[in-house]
Every structure is written in structure tokens, then in C-alpha cells.
């Protein structure tokens, strides 16, 4: 966006290098993965990965960039998922992209309301107040049958996924749909964090008083961060419900999910775009690898319950180790390794 105004001769090459990796990943994701991936890879790994990445991206805007700690992510996912279900159910012929946007807007409205305490509260106190969203949304979705079209256990089923007459209900179709949504939202988010508004987020995070004195509209900026973040998390909730699980209940969006999304961005790297993806990959893939390795090595000795518990212990230990070695997350670890490799290559 700023290339034309920057007279730096380097800017072109810098930008090309910056976008080379994401572009290559997109090409692989669109053209290679659908050809080679098994439905297990798509359904058990890539679909949850995409939905969690998007949710983490949304939370990273709020927590990583704007510095507002939130434990309500799962509530905003639930708001998005149930809103999409109801819009789809109650408005005939509503196109899926419109449903997604309306669901995002609903989640944004919920997020803005529960973001109001941020005008007075900071840090852990704010985090505790966002728990209200977590409990309230889950309670409301269970309590009022209307939200789940009077399903006795509050469960909603994904509708047929049609975009412009094309069905996206196969595993590959759902994957391509989720990938497209994630790619578009991520591109817009990259633009947002590099825009003046994104810099206002960082200003509010780094020094709220200074931001106020130079004229950053602090209150509006915080609420905007809550709104945009919840929009994205809401859309992630729709992907979670419609493309990954296909059948969800309010209890699926509990506090554990909120913590998981928070841990994803802490481990992946706060205030980085790729941190959300790296962290989500870590959380989706690592347990699977561990469980495979565990059952391979000790399958005959221990039952699956023991394996499951030991898996959690290993992941917990790894998280602690990682955060001691690199508090800024895996993303920063990559940077360090890349810098070291670059130095090695630079040496004659």
C-alpha cells in the first residue's frame, strides 16, 4: 500500500521477499494439498488448523497488537457460529458469504459490548471481566432454545455449504472454502496492522497516556479492536462449526477453547500475523504426533488414558521450556534461526 510513496530503491525487493513465503504457501495450499491430502489430513488436521488460526489471528489483533487481554474468544466464536446458523435458517436463500459477514458483525456487536469494561480495566482485571462474556454467551445459548431452533440439547447442524451454486460439502470443498475465508481475512488483517489504525492499536498498547496526549482516540481504538477482533473470531467460529465439526453445541465453546486460543498466540508469537498460524499448527499437530509416537512406543504397555495424560504433561513441559528459551514465541525463534543461517551463509 505504501510502495509508490516510498522512494527507497529497496522497497520492491523487500516486499517481494516478505510476500514470497505466504504466496508459496497459498499456491501449495490451493493446488497441491487438495490433490494429495487424505480426508483424514483435511478433516482432522487442516480444518481445525484453519479455524483455530483465524480465531488466533483475531485475538492477536486485540491482545497482541492492542494489548487488551481477553478470555472471551470462545464466546465470540459461539456468537458467530450460532448467528450464522440462525441467519441461514431464518432468511431464505441468504448467500453463504453474506451469512459469514452477518455472523461476523453479530460477534463484533457482542464483542464490543463485552469490550466496554476495557475502557476502565486493564490487564488481568480486564481478562477476568471478559470471562463474563464466556459464561454469559454459553448460558444464553443453552438457556434459550431459539438460538438452536429448539434443539433439546442446544446442538446446531451445519447447513449445506453452497457458494454461487457450487457445493462445498466434501472434505476438500470445506477445506477450500475455509482456506479462502482465512486467506481473505488474513490479507485484510495484514493491511490493517500496517495501517494508521493498526499503529494506533500498538500506540495504545505501548503507552496509553502518551497515545491519549498525542490525540489517539483511545476509547474508540480499544472498542474498535474489540469489534474487529470479535468479527474475525466470529467468522472463525462459523468455520469451526460449519466446515470442521459440522455439529456443535454451546459447551464446545467453553473456557478451555478460550484458553487454547490465548495460548496459541502466546506460543506462536504475540503481535505477529504468522504467530497465529504457527501457534495453531503447534496445537493441532503436536498432540497428534505425540499420540502417534506414544502409541507406537508404549502402545502395548499403557492404555489410551495414560497416554492421553502423559501427552498433556509433555506438551505442558514443552510450552514452559519454549517460553523460557524464547518468550516472544515460535515466530521469534524462527527469526533467530533465520538470522543465524543468514549470517552463516554471509560468511565466506
Amino acid at each position: 500500500m505504501s510502495v509508490h510513496a516510498l522512494p527507497l530503491p529497496l522497497s520492491g525487493t523487500l516486499d517481494r521477499r516478505r510476500f514470497a513465503w505466504p504466496a508459496a504457501l497459498l499456491v501449495v495450499a490451493y493446488f497441491v494439498v487438495p490433490l494429495v491430502a487424505t480426508s483424514y489430513l483435511l478433516e482432522a488436521i487442516l480444518l481445525p488448523f484453519l479455524a483455530l488460526s483465524l480465531a488466533a489471528l483475531g485475538l492477536n489483533l486485540l491482545t497482541g497488537y492492542c494489548g487488551q487481554l481477553s478470555l472471551g474468544s470462545a464466546a465470540f466464536m459461539a456468537a458467530g457460529a450460532f448467528a450464522a446458523y440462525n441467519f441461514n435458517l431464518r432468511i431464505d436463500g441468504l448467500p453463504l458469504p453474506v451469512t459469514l459477514v452477518l455472523a461476523g458483525l453479530t460477534a463484533a456487536a457482542v464483542g464490543t459490548v463485552f469490550g466496554l469494561p476495557s475502557l476502565r480495566l486493564k490487564g488481568f482485571y480486564l481478562a477476568v471481566s471478559t470471562l463474563a462474556a464466556q459464561f454469559f454467551v454459553q448460558w444464553a445459548l443453552t438457556k434459550f432454545g431459539w438460538f438452536s431452533n429448539d434443539n433439546p440439547s442446544g446442538v446446531i447442524d451445519a447447513p449445506k455449504l453452497l457458494v454461487a451454486g457450487l457445493a462445498f460439502d466434501t472434505a476438500t470443498g470445506r477445506y477450500l472454502l475455509a482456506l479462502t475465508v482465512v486467506a481473505i481475512v488474513t490479507a485484510l488483517t495484514v493491511r490493517l496492522v500496517n495501517s494508521p489504525t493498526g499503529r494506533n492499536f500498538i500506540a495504545v498498547r505501548d503507552n496509553e497516556t502518551a497515545a491519549r496526549v498525542i490525540g489517539v482516540p483511545v476509547l474508540r481504538t480499544k472498542l474498535l479492536a474489540f469489534a474487529i477482533s470479535s468479527f474475525i473470531i466470529g467468522v472463525a467460529g462459523v468455520l469451526w462449526a460449519f466446515t470442521y465439526l459440522r455439529t456443535v453445541e454451546p459447551a464446545g465453546f467453553n473456557l478451555d477453547r478460550s484458553f487454547q486460543i490465548l495460548f496459541i498466540i502466546i506460543i506462536g508469537g504475540l503481535a505477529t500475523i504468522r504467530g497465529a498460524f504457527i501457534g495453531a499448527a503447534f496445537f493441532v499437530v503436536f498432540p497428534l504426533i505425540l499420540s502417534r509416537a506414544g502409541s507406537f512406543a508404549f502402545g502395548g504397555l499403557f492404555d489410551s488414558g495414560v497416554l492421553d495424560m502423559s501427552q498433556r504433561i509433555v506438551i505442558g513441559a514443552l510450552i514452559i521450556l519454549l517460553l523460557i528459551l524464547e518468550p516472544r514465541g515460535i515466530s521469534a525463534l524462527f527469526d533467530r534461526v533465520a538470522a543465524r543461517l543468514g549470517r552463516l551463509r554471509g560468511r565466506p
Binding site: R191, L192, S195, N207, I214, I228
Partner: peptide, 26 residues
């Protein structure tokens, strides 16, 4: 603002003159 470059820190001093909103920026 430790997370911003020198350029962006200085430019932030003009934030009150901006009229564009988040949509037009994105």
C-alpha cells in the same frame, strides 16, 4: 511506542489530523 519504528512514532504525533477511517485505510 516501543513496538513502532522511529518513523511511525514520529508520524503518530499527527494522528489527530487524520480524517480517514479504518475501512478506507484497509
Amino acid at each position: 511506542f516501543g513496538g513502532l519504528s522511529v518513523r511511525d512514532n514520529v508520524a503518530s504525533g499527527l494522528v489527530h489530523k487524520r480524517r480517514s477511517n479504518v475501512f478506507s485505510q484497509v
